[in-house]
Simulated scan of single mutants.
Amino acid sequence: MSRPAPGPEQSSASSAAADGNSARECLHCSIRHLSVCSALSCDEVQALEQITTSMPVPMGATLARTGEPRAYVYTVTEGALRLVRTLADGRRQVNGFVLPGDYMGLSGADQHRYDIEAIAESRVCRVPMSQMRDLRQRYPHLERKLLQRACQELDAAQDNALALARLQPPERLADFLLRLAAREATLLGRSSNRVSLPMGRGDIADHLGLTMETVSRTFTKLRQQGLIALPHLNVVEILDFAALQKLANDEL
Rank of each mutant, 00 (worst) to 15 (best):
101 G>A: 10
117 E>H: 07
138 R>C: 07
88 A>T: 09
89 D>V: 15
66 T>Y: 06
193 N>Q: 13
154 L>C: 07
26 C>Y: 12
136 R>N: 09
226 G>A: 00
155 D>S: 09
203 D>W: 13
210 L>H: 06
88 A>E: 05
10 Q>M: 01
67 G>M: 00
88 A>M: 11
179 R>K: 14
109 A>C: 01
8 P>W: 14
79 G>W: 03
144 R>Y: 09
229 A>T: 03
107 S>V: 04
217 R>D: 12
125 C>Q: 07
159 D>H: 14
132 M>V: 04
14 S>H: 09
249 N>R: 13
132 M>P: 00
215 V>M: 05
89 D>L: 13
111 Q>V: 09
178 L>G: 04
20 G>R: 04
6 P>S: 11
77 T>W: 01
181 A>I: 05
40 L>M: 01
96 G>E: 12
224 Q>G: 08
220 T>P: 15
149 R>V: 03
14 S>L: 06
184 E>G: 01
103 Y>W: 08
168 Q>H: 14
27 L>K: 04
242 A>M: 12
7 G>T: 10
52 T>W: 06
45 V>M: 11
195 V>C: 03
122 S>V: 01
140 P>Y: 04
44 E>Y: 06
243 A>N: 08
59 M>I: 10
111 Q>L: 04
24 R>S: 02
201 R>S: 14
98 V>E: 03
92 R>C: 14
105 G>D: 10
48 L>H: 00
223 R>L: 08
80 A>I: 11
223 R>K: 15
74 Y>C: 12
35 S>P: 00
222 L>E: 05
237 E>M: 04
84 V>I: 13
134 D>R: 15
214 T>L: 10
26 C>L: 15
211 T>I: 08
186 T>D: 14
200 G>Y: 08
191 S>H: 12
45 V>I: 02
161 A>H: 11
4 P>A: 06
208 L>C: 00
220 T>K: 09
162 L>P: 15
241 F>W: 14
109 A>M: 05
190 R>Y: 15
22 S>P: 02
175 D>N: 02
177 L>C: 12
149 R>C: 07
224 Q>M: 07
200 G>F: 11
164 L>S: 10
59 M>A: 01
110 D>F: 15
179 R>L: 03
137 Q>E: 14
79 G>L: 04
58 P>Q: 00
153 E>H: 02
110 D>L: 11
223 R>T: 08
120 A>M: 04
190 R>T: 12
168 Q>K: 13
156 A>C: 05
163 A>I: 02
167 L>W: 11
